[in-house]
Amino acid sequence: MQELFQQLANGIAWGSIYALIALGYTMVYGILRLINFAHGDVYMVGAFAAYYFAIATGAGGATASLPGALLVLLGAMVACALLGVLIEFLAYRPVRRSSRLTALITAIGVSLFLENVGLRVFGADPKFFPQLIPPRRIHLAGGVVVTNHQVTVVVVSILLMVGLTLFIHRTKTGKAMRAVAFHRDAASLMGIPVNRIITITFAIGSALAAAAGVLVGLTNPKIEPLMGIMPGIKAFVAAVLGGIGSIPGAVIGGLVMGVSEYLVVGYLSSTYRDAIAFIILILVLLIRPAGLLGRNVAEKV
């Protein structure tokens, strides 16, 4: 029983990171119908941006402090928001009116570009993420042990997700985003500045990915330029699992993936870790073809 709760705790912490990345996928998909393959690499850039910020500001190691950590988090988020906007402007905007596959290949190109520039600039060997917050173990009821890093991950993720939900449902810009996602051309006719909304979407999605990158740096301090590939794919799977385009769906999908991975590692074998996500996905899609919370839109003839 203790083992089960322990794995659940680990899974929720890890799943929050998937959820944060999945939010970016699902937002971009909702608006552009584009699988933004480069999103996992934006997360990688977020981790590296935080790494360099932390070194520059001395926010790691002995001089670690909470304001310093927050500053690093904020810095990485702003850097990646700019990167996301730049990617959209330079690569995706020119192919927006082309077929969706063209856009997809462009996204793959951007992904390869970020990975290889990363290898060139950051170097291929892993770097050790500075400790922004001194590690501490917290004993919970029932003998479950979590680290304060895991708690931070969950708390920061929840705050960001609540913030995002409020933004989308309570602000004018959020309303415009929902309108563009619902029907881009109609939104444009209603006077919504579609281009600006898409830019904002990329900025927010990329900032969330950067936050995920920083949080991963906290818990798994080894970062390298190819670290975005697998979490990127799995976060996308999480978004599809929850119903792509749905924000609560992305969160649920991320948590389901994180928890199931840790349960497999704990009870079966870690070699099956990468397969379980896809097995769950296929089972869910066979029963609910549009994902857990997705709406199945019938094609009108």
Binding site: Y29, F236, V240, I244, A275, F278, I279, L281, I282, L285
Partner: peptide, 26 residues
């Protein structure tokens, strides 16, 4: 699954299949 799934959902299932095969062989 192509009976039930379309577009991106079918795509992600084929991706999942590819990964499952790889892990199974491993």
């Amino acid at each position: 699954p192509s009976m039930r799934l379309r577009g991106d959902y079918l795509a992600i299932v084929t991706l999942g299949f590819g990964e499952i095969i790889r892990v199974a062989i491993l």
